[in-house]
Design a binder for these strands. Structure first.
Lengths: 233, 233
DNA sequence: CAGTGGTCTAGACCACTGG
DNA sequence: CAGTGGTCTAGACCACTGG
């Protein structure tokens, strides 16, 4: 299980960008130069540059060369994405910390949102998601037991609630509310931020063919997470 | 300028997923099978699958094969709405306070974002939008003069910049970044909030057929504004 | 065992940029 | 012109999965 050579070359360049030896606009070594420096074939040197290009760190122009991009990429699409996939797609490590897994009686508002009777039992999970061991999302989720009876038996350290629910109750509809908020001291502590730091909060309700599956509150430290979107046509 | 072969193969598979010939979980042809079908080398067939994998459409497992992913990434439509229309639709009164209307020389970053020369003149407007006389949005906007020559002559108390630009340079493309931030004392004063209140900030870049039209920073008091989205199917 | 995807080589031709 | 990145070939060895 040794490191692929193209990864070694990729990191070599990435490090130089991170520590300032290469600045935006600077030219990085060409494919041929990397071939010689690392004694690899051009296809391998090329792959390192290609991955960096795909990640938005380099801009490559035939006839000219490869250059460090002006701006580091903006995180993500406005998608219903699995936070674990999102972290992995950035090449970072993902971990989950389970804060709480229990059942609660539905309040009037919760019952209405999930279309169940008041005081009926709901599955409840609270999980903190970490990217390279830094908290990036607090997830508080209520689930309609009729839609996912085995919810509390899952190991959410390996499969996110989102991924699990998508499997047992395929998503047909979703609504979101996005706002900027302050959070309680308890949540701030878990997210390792000051309690007066602004947070990006997403409240989401998801439907499957059979009805409302789940309502979730996702809270992100404002300085560690942003939503990106691109629209065309 | 012919289509690369790996793109042809990629589209071949993408089409089968789109029209339902391949469903989530189905196995797609292996690299070797594609080599024979399309008479290409394995590296080329591989590239088609690799790109689809990077896009999240396939999941590949050594020893097993390549399979159609369970979930297509779902983008939630975030509407680009006119703030005045939005306020009116809530049955409230709308007013605009013009803070600033001038021309500025493009910084390096601004020039790059708007695709103009550094130090070329840009139109600049700063407007606070009020709902029932309460500030709900701080709008700081830079406009490419080539796209809307009469921009500074408009009366933005009656027509929002958004509405005017949509008329003279119809929108074809937009990208957003959404984040939670704190704002400067000057902006907080105009928004009539404490400077430590969290704000929802949207950075938006809009394109028309002829190119980038405008970049805008929209700042909303966290307790007075939120974004909503709904996605179906 | 045959088959899969992951990595890699040492070549090739191409359109393009700059000097 | 020499150099760049974009595409492509026909091989290779590997760790791994399933039957």
């Amino acid at each position: 299980m040794s490191t692929p050579r193209f990864v070694t070359i990729k990191k070599f360049i990435e490090d130089k960008i991170d520590n300032g030896q290469l600045s935006p606009g600077d030219r990085v070594p060409s494919e041929n130069e990397l071939c010689q420096q690392f004694s690899v074939s051009r296809m391998t040197a090329r792959r390192a540059l290609q991955v960096l290009n795909d990640d938005g760190l380099l801009i490559r122009t035939p006839g000219l060369g490869s250059f460090v991009a002006e701006h580091r990429p903006i995180s993500t699409m406005l998608e219903i994405r699995n936070i674990a996939d999102e972290v992995h797609s950035r090449g970072h490590s993902y971990k989950a910390k389970i804060i709480n897994m229990d059942e609660v009686a539905a309040s009037e508002q919760q019952a209405q949102m999930l279309n169940v009777d008041i005081d009926s039992l709901l599955f409840h999970s609270v999980i903190v998601h970490l990217e390279d061991d830094i908290p990036v999302q607090w997830e508080d989720r209520l689930v309609n037991p009729a839609m996912a009876a085995q919810y509390l038996q899952q190991d959410f350290k390996t499969v996110t609630p989102n991924a699990y629910l998508s499997k047992v109750a395929p998503l047909t509809e979703a609504s979101h509310k996005i706002e900027a908020t302050l959070v309680s001291a308890a949540i701030a502590a878990e997210l390792q931020i000051d309690s007066h730091s602004p947070c990006l909060q997403i409240s989401r309700r998801t439907w499957s063919a059979a009805g409302v599956v789940s309502i979730a509150t996702l809270i992100h430290p404002g300085n560690r997470y942003c939503l990106g979107g691109h629209w065309k046509l």
